[in-house]
Design a protein around this nucleic acid. Structure first.
Lengths: 363, 363
DNA sequence: GCAAAAGTGTTTCCCCTACACCCATGG
DNA sequence: CCATGGGTGTAGGGGAAACACTTTTGC
């Protein structure tokens, strides 16, 4: 860095850049990928319409931004700045190891305000960040569904939409080559739980290129359900017991995956629980074989083969002798319980990507 | 970017960062990967010993740095800054499309001098940059063998060694998914030429983890040869005709791959040419089957199958009807000549990586 | 006993590798 | 005719997907 010529660069180029960090805090809630966003104050927002450069426009209530802010000069590393800013704006705490750099975004014009800002983007992929927003002054912060933020029209300020897309790509890469997905499992877990994390993150609804209509409809159904249910008791049940809630505090050790006993014997609650099952499966159904039908969608998430793939990776999963756990429906053969292995790197990588199916050859 | 709070960040955080770009200009010469480096002036250099933080030490004649410098405030994008700095310091011209971002390096302490510098690293992978250094004031710039720079002890200032390693990884990724390797071929080329580019770039001598002794020895032999030959006529022959020189200006259209006629009939020159062949093969020999022996090294560079892989990718290569070209030895069946296809992206990707060979399963 | 879920065994298919062979050229 | 290198045909091995089947639980 810096000019190798004899002239001290400092005098030649006055240092008047703003250096900031942006953080993409990704998590999974009820089978949907969510990201922490903030609503900035002030009469104007910097949003891009139709893919053009971001411009100052009247602030709408639907404008969001990724949490982020300036790096403290001289005192902290970029990663530390990301950690601090994320906490300041959302009260989400992450360790430095949970932050991965996405890249630098620094073209003039990305921020229409005066001055020049260079932003280094980081992604934090983490389950239910502990007591998010609790006791915080970050009243403008909340988690939003990624599928909403990626849909048209653009709701994210600056180039945060691009950053969000890049973050998803980054996390997918990490999940294939590192045990990062285990962060979404408790200390002990079954392969179903692990598989669900992969199924959500690799869902094609989050692909940059095509978000097909069918997936959008599925997501819409879940969202509508969430809204109409509001604060119903059912929603609490979902929060507590659905497979992808993963709130360490509200889930009891062994009761995690089992249908709550109290509810199971209650006819009405049981029917409500069926909705939970439905939600769980909405995003994953298409990956399963239609009952008694021809498989319509090739995938890498076939339970049996996912198990073989995952367990073949040395140091990834460590089976716990004798310990098993019952499935979410409260019936069926208890699943083997695993513990995180020692490997820091998956070798061979757990490749999820479907092969590009060399169809072109046939022509 | 920037603080979403109401307070104008500008007043709160004085903008006194230095924002710089560093450029890894990679090329291939005589079968070796080379990178453009500069020698900075001044009595001290910022070099790291034994993996510790970079410290100011007395400058040695063996200290090098990647070209780079400050981004011009407000006037240029990061990529444009990289393009400009590379030209200013080495007189290498690259187009913006040839630059790919590696990432941001900005921790305090990476540059021991006063102030805080954030550096965005870019990689330019390009053949024989046009008339490098010609008429330039960049007398301190030169190309060096990557294998030397990666060897111990560290010869690169700051964290440039890390950046160089990251650049290689980046280029390898690009070569699997984009037609970037075609930049090292002329407008028309044979598959041998294309394959050679892949063989060099993916040689395990450039792997971050292990640079095995055998490879180091091979490289050492080539280097020693280069030095002892100096400016001999032979070296010119190598520059002009060796497969991996790729200097567009000195190679005549059809004579490129054929042994120069004048030399071929000359006994002494012919024996010299054998050395050229030897150099060409030094790095690639281990990828080929030892004559009449068991293959000792599984690889993805088997000529026949590399051809099939490459030609199966739609829009990558376009065969030119009727046009063929004779091989480097001046004999054998003429090779099919190709032209660059229209595809901007390789689908399916040309995966080079050897499978991790699921040996672990057997235990 | 039956339904449901986990996990295993096994078949099948496809791709990749390896290798033999043929082709085209110069000498 | 031989040496040399390009390209094709094709058999065999390995791995992944698909699917049938077994096991173990709750009701």
């Amino acid at each position: 860095m810096t000019n190798p010529s004899a002239t001290p660069a400092d005098s030649q180029f006055p240092a008047n850049f703003h250096v900031a960090v942006d953080i993409v805090a990704l998590t999974i809630k009820r089978g949907l990928l969510q990201v922490a966003v903030v609503q900035r104050q002030g009469p104007e927002s910097c949003i891009s319409v139709d893919g053009g450069p971001a411009r100052l426009t009247a602030r709408s209530s639907h404008d969001y931004a990724l949490p982020g802010g300036h790096v403290h000069w001289q005192s902290e590393s970029l990663k530390e700045a990301a950690q601090r800013e994320l906490f300041e704006e959302t009260h989400i705490e992450v360790s430095l190891d949970d932050l991965e750099q996405i890249g630098a975004y620094g073209d003039p014009g990305r921020d229409p305000r005066p001055g020049r800002t260079i932003s280094i983007a980081y992604v934090a992929f983490h389950p239910e960040f502990s007591s998010p927003f609790a006791g915080s002054d970050a009243t403008n912060a909340k988690f939003m569904d990624v599928i909403d933020l990626l849909a048209e029209p653009n709701k994210l300020e600056f180039d945060h939409r691009t950053i969000l897309r890049d973050a998803i790509t980054k996390v997918r890469d990490l999940m294939e080559r590192t045990p990062i997905a285990l962060k979404f499992c408790q200390e002990t877990f079954t392969l179903l739980e692990l598989r669900n994390v992969y199924e959500v993150m690799f869902h094609r609804a989050y692909n940059a290129d095509r978000s097909d209509a069918k997936t959008q409809r599925d997501a819409e159904r879940i969202r509508r359900f969430d809204q109409t249910q509001g604060d119903s008791p059912l929603k609490k049940v979902i929060d507590q017991f659905s497979l992808l809630s993963f709130n360490n505090e509200t889930r009891s050790e062994q009761g995690f995956a089992s249908r709550p006993k109290g509810l199971a014997s209650n006819r009405q609650a049981s029917s409500e629980y069926a909705v939970v099952d439905k939600i769980q499966k909405l995003l994953t159904d298409e990956f399963r074989k239609p009952s008694g039908d021809r498989p319509v969608f090739k995938n890498s998430f076939d339970p049996a083969n996912f198990l073989r793939k995952a367990t073949a990776i040395e140091g990834f999963l460590e089976p716990i002798n004798g310990r098993t756990q019952i499935g979410p429906s409260g019936t069926g053969k208890p699943a083997q319980v695993y513990r995180r292995g020692k490997a820091k790197r998956l070798d061979p990588p757990l490749i999820v990507e479907r092969k590009p199916s060399s169809k072109p050859k046939t022509r």
